[in-house]
Design a protein around this nucleic acid. Structure first.
Lengths: 212, 212
DNA sequence: TTGTGTATATTCACTGGTCAGTATACATAA
DNA sequence: TTATGTATACTGACCAGTGAATATACACAA
């Protein structure tokens, strides 16, 4: 892999990323990706065996950064676990207000490949969602039992992916904040660390102008 | 519209419904729909002006029955509002266990048409989701304030659509029940009708073997 | 230094196939 | 006859993937 080779591959992936995320994998032709990358389709096929390979690579490179972003938002947020979870949704809402935002690429790709469960992109998508869930689970396990942490993590994931879908459908980012409020409420209902923090959570809830 | 005309139209819609829902609107060609309906493409184009029209009609005829099903599940369930909402999810989980289940057709179509917000099918999809939300809202309004009812309805919708997406991705219907548990928990947290039912809800929560 | 071989990287032009939609004609019933 | 409904056969555009040739860069021998 020479220097030019690597940069070419990256240019292709960048073009593919913008187009696949922006318009969907089926709506975008290989020709369109090649043109956006400023090279010939044949060159693209030198670096990627097939369109399916390209789709898989497009998701693959988004896996780690995406999870890292969640972790960063969580770590940088103030307050208890519930507030930190809610901060993730608040940041997602901010993202969703950008005009180029088109929901979750993993979820959308999985919808477009609904009848190809073994497709590499589907495998990557499932692994990504699982990784986010596992991370949330590990966070909750510091406060509650393992089985309950798993359930809670799944509920947060459900709210998040629901928000991805609903915000995209209605083009209304406030649903993301509604999801965040629900998530915080669920967390507070489960993670009541020792004893007095139940009261603390209640106070926190009362102060909020938003419901949930 | 003669008798044959109507039945032909219905045959087309039935074929389109199975194929569009089963494989996605972009993956299914008009030729495929015509063949499944047992007629030629030209005949199909006599009854529908375009593929987009057919897609819109495919969703249109699913709007009312879908909502009616939710209402029936809710009405036939035993227990308080929370239990009735949870029953909807339980029924959805049962549906999701069928091999032909492929999530929510409205949501999936909206993903496939992500860059065509004015597409008739998108308008229908948004209206459908809105109708379900409004119905849930009206149910909650019998117990709590209007603004809180709206928020709660949206949170249930978020869980439901999240479950549609996640169950489809992982092919694991238990997420639907997890979503139902979260929904019930959220409802119980808000709909504590007069005064003592707060305690009742807490007891109910403790008894449940499932978390949430 | 110069020539030669080899692997990498890229281009142009093409194939076989699919797709949405249509031109035209035919049939049947009011 | 005219309106409705159906069929055959077609168009033009697009699309994933390929064949064959070429360009570039580097290694090593003369």
């Amino acid at each position: 892999m020479s220097e030019t080779g690597r940069s070419t591959r990256e240019r292709i992936l960048q073009a593919a990323g913008k187009l696949f995320y922006g318009e969907g994998i089926r709506a975008v032709s290989v020709d369109a990706v090649a043109e956006k990358a400023g090279l010939t389709k044949r060159t693209l096929y030198y670096h990627f065996r097939s369109k399916d390979d390209l789709i898989a690579a497009y998701l693959e490179i988004r896996d780690q950064p995406n999870l890292a972003l969640f972790k960063r938002w969580f770590a940088e947020a103030q307050g208890d676990v519930a507030a930190k979870v809610e901060a993730i949704f608040r940041n997602l809402a901010r993202s969703a207000r950008h005009s180029k935002w088109k929901g979750c690429g993993f979820l959308r790709t999985s919808v477009e490949l609904v009848n190809l469960p073994g497709h590499p992109a589907m495998v990557i998508g499932r692994a990504h969602k699982k990784r986010v869930e596992d991370w949330l689970c590990s966070v909750f396990e510091e406060a509650i039992a393992s089985r309950e942490a798993r359930q809670l993590a799944r509920q947060i994931i459900l709210l998040m992916d629901g928000a991805f879908a609903v915000v995209l459908l209605h083009r209304d980012p406030t649903y993301m904040e509604t999801a965040g409020a629900a998530a915080a409420r669920l967390v507070r209902g489960m993670v009541s660390t020792p004893r007095k923090s139940i009261k603390a959570a209640k106070i926190g809830r009362t102060i909020r102008p938003r419901i949930g």
